[in-house]
């Protein structure tokens, strides 16, 4: 077992982890339920979280490597995710929603970009996020509208 200290949603956690333990499992231990499993091969984007504001698949990120890092799950951007949901709703982009928390986090990461955000940037940010419901076009439109009103475009 390895003892590590890291931040999850701005709260400090010190805990023992197995060397092969993935972040998705650790987060479950910390009672975070928003990070769900979609594929087992780090290819669907459902379990995306932010490590130091960069999106990573938590099913393929070893917790032991996160000492001193800041992990953000959608619980850490609660109000922002709620605001984004309104835009998804207006575009018909919210259906089963299984991929949505991960997308909200990637949008949060995108907002850190200093230059104006273009449609190409949004598509790039959604690249790792598979969605079987929406057809994507409405998601891109919703995110664009959200960022416009949020003054990031």
């Amino acid at each position: 077992m390895i003892n590590i200290t890291f931040m999850v949603n701005h709260r400090k956690h010190s805990l023992e982890v197995k060397p092969g333990e993935y972040l998705i499992e650790t987060l479950k231990r910390l009672n975070i339920h928003s990070v769900r499993r979609g594929c087992d091969t780090a290819s669907c984007g459902v379990c995306t979280v932010l490590v130091d504001l960069k999106p990573v698949p938590s099913c393929a990120t070893l917790t032991a490597r996160l000492a001193g890092k800041n992990v953000t799950t959608v619980e850490g951007i609660h109000d922002e995710a709620g605001a984004l949901a309104d835009y998804f709703g207006l575009e018909g982009a919210d259906q089963c929603g299984f991929c949505n928390p991960g997308i909200a986090l990637s949008v949060h990461a995108l907002k850190q970009q200093s230059s104006p955000i273009t449609e190409a940037d949004i598509k790039q940010a959604l690249t790792g996020h598979l969605c079987r419901c929406s057809g994507y076009v409405s998601q891109v439109k919703a995110i664009m509208a959200y960022l416009k009103d949020d003054a990031h475009v």
Partner: peptide, 13 residues
């Protein structure tokens, strides 16, 4: 147009 009744809760995880 009406946002889904559960859309916000789902997005918020």
């Amino acid at each position: 147009v009406r946002p889904s009744v559960d859309g916000k809760g789902i997005m918020q995880g």
